[in-house]
Design a binder for these strands. Structure first.
Lengths: 249, 249
DNA sequence: CGCGCGTTTGACATGACTCAAATGCTGTGG
DNA sequence: CCACAGCATTTGAGTCATGTCAAACGCGCG
């Protein structure tokens, strides 16, 4: 099954442009999901100036590691990332998955060191926003400040929902909720909401949802038996979003 | 056992002042923990102007409920609060406990509606910060903006740690971690780090840590048998912080 | 093409939940 | 100020969902 089956033609084109060029914010396909939303074009031009558009990160490559000095926020341009923190004896919690237009590193502002390890799940690229410059710019650009606050607030709200999931939901509810959250995010980005790739491993999913890998695998198999999904390796197709929603608890 | 055993004399005095008067930020005992930290006195005076110092909330009284229109951030002045969100069939997740100097409502900025129910755990009071005014003020006060971002970032980092706790820790590790987190916060506020009141119910603790009430009760009893703590109703005394730390996972 | 990791599936163990009941505490009204 | 009602807490017994261990499979990467 070719990967292109899972993306809209529109997105294919845009994704290619994104990868090939250091395009400016106003021409970026992620514009309406991203930080610059609502800025005037003068402001936008200034913002453009401070953004470092990095080369690609390869699968498994780190964006930053825990305790690194905080310098920049990152916005995913293409691909996907995970962040994780570790307990003793090697238990990992995947604290988030990040897709194009989403911010990484917001929890580092406070201590001025990164609080997690961030790793690419596939070939990916980011826009780097040096925080000093961003702050400087924010002094004359109230809308930028509001955007930043809004971003942080959104992530906070998402994390609170995840706390509900981790604390109160069964394995089945966790997975149904997770799949629908991905579906929504892909839809927002112009991908199909029913057919997409799970770029993270089953282990990553397990460590995100507070489950054992085996449990994730079993529940996905059960969902497939119940005709809720069709899953082939990393490719998944949601067959019955209604029933999945009903399963979310 | 009188409640005053559990607070330092210093704090008793300050707490009384806080309750009795609508004192300005610069005279507030929470100054160094709170938003105004680092503002110049001109700026501080302006901030003071927009703060509404509300009367008390009684135990169980709501500060706001889910889906209420977002208007203000709140900072706890005295007492304590909890925030919670609900899954279907009445399962509640307590997403946070809030003590003097801590912010409530930061996750509401994004959707402009409150995302949780906030309830007082005891007689409590707050400083209300109307967000519109705060934004207006922020335009000419970069430090205020940084402070706000830092606050949000701190809560975000805390929530990520809680995700690790909820996803990966055993019941014993959860409770040890929780007690030490309270200890640290009380210490930061000039309370004893070893003797304090659990203002929340066992049920609240359970719903915060993703456990059943019975499990919380059992583990606390076990901790007491093992001479880690002495607990009498809501009053707790940590006897061996070192061992508790070792139990955190 | 083959090795190794990721995934799936099965069998079993167990930590935490549920149900139940006794006890204790708190707030309220007489 | 006391007594009672109702809720909170504790403790016990038994169950169950999920974790752990083990093994086979197969896909993907080098």
């Amino acid at each position: 099954m070719a990967q292109s089956n899972n993306v809209t033609p529109l997105f294919n084109d845009l994704a290619k442009i994104q990868r090939d060029h250091n395009i400016a914010c106003q021409d970026c396909s992620l514009y309406r999901l991203c930080l610059p939303l609502g800025l005037h074009s003068d402001d936008l031009a200034q913002l453009d100036q401070i953004i470092k558009r990095s080369q690609s990160y390869k699968r498994r490559q780190s964006l930053f590691t825990v305790d690194n000095k905080f310098t920049s926020l990152y916005v995913v341009r293409s691909g996907s990332f995970k962040t994780m923190i570790s307990a003793s004896n090697g238990r990992d919690q995947v604290t988030g998955f990040y897709f194009p237009g989403e911010f990484i590193g917001l929890d580092a502002i406070h201590q001025q060191t990164y609080q997690s390890n961030a790793k690419a799940l596939e070939s990916s690229s980011v826009c780097e926003l040096p925080f000093e410059n961003l702050q400087e710019l924010g002094k004359d650009m109230p809308k930028l400040q509001v955007q930043l606050l809004t971003r942080l607030s959104k992530e906070l709200a998402g994390d609170k929902s995840l706390m509900l999931l981790l604390g109160k939901k069964t394995a089945g509810e966790k997975l149904a909720t997770f799949l629908l959250s991905l579906s929504k995010r892909f839809q927002d980005r112009g991908f199909s909401s029913t057919e997409f790739q799970l770029t993270m491993s089953r282990t990553d999913i397990a460590n995100h949802l507070g489950l054992a890998v085996e449990t994730v695998s079993r529940i996905l198999s059960r969902f497939q038996e119940d005709d809720l999904i069709v899953i082939t390796g990393k490719a998944i197709s949601l067959q019955n979003i209604g029933k999945l929603k009903a399963l979310c608890g």
